[in-house]
């Protein structure tokens, strides 16, 4: 009977034990930041205050810098390019900007982290490119639409005579990217336009694609009118516009999958409960 009771007590004791994880400490944590007769505010207190804010981006930058180096990705050219961009944006205020990062070197480290995150993200997208091409069906095209057949005929008449698609659209009041844009199956194009794109593997100018536009006025009266799309497919081979497609993918594929992949691959092991809770809330592969 005594042994049974002892075992019961042991189980209850073990169950009741605290499951709080470990937290890292800074060296010389007792150093006073603020001294007071009622007790100092120390370096450890300040560090713990930092750890209670959302420092996930700082952590991610640091982790990704190391992973990018391990993967052999050279980010220095991108770092310099980004720093130059900030210099021209901020002009005389650039020095003030870098002050909050501890100077130019600190600012470059910050940029190196950001650039590393983007690089890993892009490389992950490239690694899984076939999957994304199948899912997103990217193509490069110029697309215009008109609300009357008169405008359609005028546009096509001019373009079919040899005039430039983009210039003709601009002359008729359109703001259009002259080189064309990368579209995907997820973009908000009318169903009929997507049907046209998916039904063919050709490039070139389409016939007018008729869609129906439904509008409701202030009185609640619904009206349906035709809208005519003209698509000039420039390229269907993603290899010819991979960078633009990756840029487009960033709107749809968040970087959590990419980060999780690299954390798992490089066996990221965290030794602070707060950091673990923060990272594991968004990313897998954190140990």
């Amino acid at each position: 009977m005594k042994k049974v009771l002892l075992v019961l007590l042991a189980v209850l004791f073990l169950f009741g034990c605290s499951n709080a994880g470990g937290t890292a400490k800074v060296t010389d944590g007792e150093t006073a930041i603020i001294t007071s007769p009622d007790g100092n505010y120390t370096k450890q207190d300040l560090f713990d205050a930092f750890m209670n804010t959302d420092m996930s981006y700082t952590l991610l930058q640091h982790i990704c810098k190391q992973i990018a180096a391990k993967e052999g990705f050279d980010v220095e050219a991108s770092v310099e390019e980004t720093v130059e961009m900030y210099k021209s944006m901020y002009g005389e205020s650039f020095d003030l900007l870098t002050e909050s990062y501890g100077g130019l070197d600190g600012f470059k480290e910050y940029i190196r982290g950001s650039v590393s995150i983007t690089r890993l993200y892009d490389e992950y997208l490239k690694m899984n490119m076939e999957k994304y091409v199948e899912e997103y069906k990217p193509f490069k095209a110029q697309i215009v639409y008109f609300d009357t057949m008169e405008d359609v005929d005028k546009f096509l008449g001019t373009v079919n005579s040899g005039a430039d698609f983009a210039q003709t659209a601009t002359d008729m009041g359109y703001l259009l990217d002259a080189t064309g844009q990368v579209y995907t199956d997820k973009d908000s194009l009318p169903y009929e336009v997507k049907e046209y794109i998916n039904s063919s593997s050709e490039t070139g100018l389409s016939e007018p694609i008729v869609t129906v536009l439904s509008t409701t006025d202030a009185n609640g009266t619904a009206t349906e009118t035709n809208r005519y799309y003209i698509v000039n497919v420039l390229d269907r081979d993603y290899n010819n516009f991979e960078d633009e497609f990756i840029n487009s993918l960033r709107s749809y594929v968040d970087n959590a999958a990419a980060m999780s992949y690299y954390f798992e691959k490089h066996n990221l092991t965290v030794h602070d409960q707060r950091v673990y809770d923060l990272l594991s809330a968004t990313y897998e592969g954190v140990k």
Binding site: N19, A20, G21, G22, T23, A24, K25, V26, T27, K43, L46, F47, F50, M55, T58, L59, H62, I63, Q66, I67, K70, H266, N267, L268, T269, V270, H271, D272, Q273, V275, Y276, D277, S280
Partner: peptide
Amino acid sequence: PTTVKTAQEDGKYLIYRLGDDTYTADELY
């Protein structure tokens, strides 16, 4: 929830380890 154990290297607390690379609490501070 997963509980995490602290770790130290050369007397400094680690935030994380990534293969041979580490990031200490001092560096994060």
